[in-house]
Design a protein around this nucleic acid. Structure first.
Lengths: 133, 133
DNA sequence: TTAGGTGTACTAGTTTAACTAATACACTAC
DNA sequence: GTAGTGTATTAGTTAAACTAGTACACCTAA
């Protein structure tokens, strides 16, 4: 039987993001870094809920969102697994997503005392840390 | 007497961001693009509230936040003005802000079918559009 | 001095998203 | 049949966001 991979995530009180969003973001990050390879099994919604001290429905919501994004696959009676990377969005939708994300990011960093090249280099460095690219 | 600069912003229903946050972000963007040069006068909280169909307290909240960020200066009886750019954050706080913003951005774009260089180039292009850098 | 326009602050109420709790059902492997 | 798994629903609570109303302090022009 498939062994569950430990999930090194936590909830931060004071984080502006809702709890379910924090879970979504951290799991994406773990997958992106290769700490959760395809086919690995995640903790059950009840187990992760106990680990994080939250309600199983909240965990289920996070898993549902990641499933909708194509990162996870859930099977009743069996559990939740990391999927092989597969693209859910059309080319247009991806371009739009990139535009939107970039706009938000630029809005956050535009007034910092870094020049554009420094910021772009920093983004490139962080992206290059993601193993599966 | 100083003339009020028209403010080309709007509220988007369905946007996940709260209304006051949308206003903050759009004013930052207008300033960043040079559409609101230093010393220009923004609409009063009552006028902008009417323009956007929201409560003056909500506008006041947005203006307060931008004032705290050092982008705007408010004077009772006179109005709200764009300030000369000045840095509010220490070097460490700026570095931290860049790390945090980059992490969020990377989380959003990591699974798109673009390579790191493409994404970094796109960020650089958007940053170079901001005139005051 | 007054009127009109400006920002700021407070109280009270409403709305809505997020979360919890409980429960029940469907699926799977043993 | 049992234990463990995901999924869904209902009901309740909490807190953030927003509105409405009101009042006060400041500023300029007349």
């Amino acid at each position: 039987m498939k062994k569950t991979t430990a999930l090194a995530i936590s909830i931060t009180t004071g984080d502006a993001r809702p709890v379910f969003r924090q879970i979504v973001d951290q799991i994406r990050e773990q997958i992106g870094k290769g700490n959760l390879p395809p086919d690995s099994k995640l903790p059950s919604v009840r187990a992760l809920a106990m680990q994080l001290g939250i309600n199983p429905n909240t965990v289920s919501r996070s898993y549902s969102e990641l499933t909708a994004q194509g990162l996870l696959g859930a099977r009743r009676g069996l559990g939740v697994f990391v999927l092989e990377p597969q693209q859910q969005l059309s080319d247009d939708a991806q371009q739009q997503k990139l535009e939107e994300a970039t706009k938000g990011f630029v809005n956050e960093v535009m007034y910092l005392d870094f020049n554009p090249q420094q910021i772009a280099d920093h983004v490139l460095a962080e992206l290059n840390k993601i193993k599966n690219r």
